[in-house]
Every structure is written in C-alpha cells, then in structure tokens.
Amino acid sequence: MKTYKRYHPLVWVLVIIPILILSFGIPYYNRNDIVFGLNFMSFFLIVMDIVTIILTFIAYTIEQKTSQRRKK
C-alpha cells in the first residue's frame, strides 16, 4: 500500500495526542471538584485547549523545517 508519508512522524504524534487524551481520558477528567474556581472538567478542557495550541504550534514548526529540507 503506497501511503503518502509526507508528514514527519512526530507531527502525527503531536496532533493525535490531544485527540487520544480527550477521547479516552474521560473517566479520568470526569470529576466535579473545584480547581482554580472551575469544576475539574471545565478546568481540564481549558488546559487541553492550551496544550493543543502548543502541540499544534510545535507540529507546525516541525512541518516548516521538514518542508524547507525537502525543497533543498
């Protein structure tokens, strides 16, 4: 099977991490204790949103470098 493996493997890993955590980690973040004034689930989702932004930015940086190397 010919697959277009043009993304750096780390790019795949970085962007899939939030999806896996949010999909399969529900039993762990399904809590109602209050953290920094928010219930835990809301707090966790805000943290995951920021983590996703950071991970996607790192993936973007890697993708840019891979792309420049490919052009050379």
Binding site: Y7, V15, P18, I19, M41, L45, T56
Partner: peptide, 20 residues
C-alpha cells in the same frame, strides 16, 4: 449538565484534524 462540555471537547479535537 456537564454532558454539554462535549461541545468544547469536540472543537478542541477538530483543529488537529484540520492541521493534518
């Protein structure tokens, strides 16, 4: 109740898919 937070969870997950 908190089931509604699925909406936030899904929009967080969607942007990595957009990136790819």
């Amino acid at each position: 109740g908190v089931l509604a937070l699925f909406a936030t969870s899904y929009v967080i997950m969607t942007y990595p898919i957009v990136f790819l």
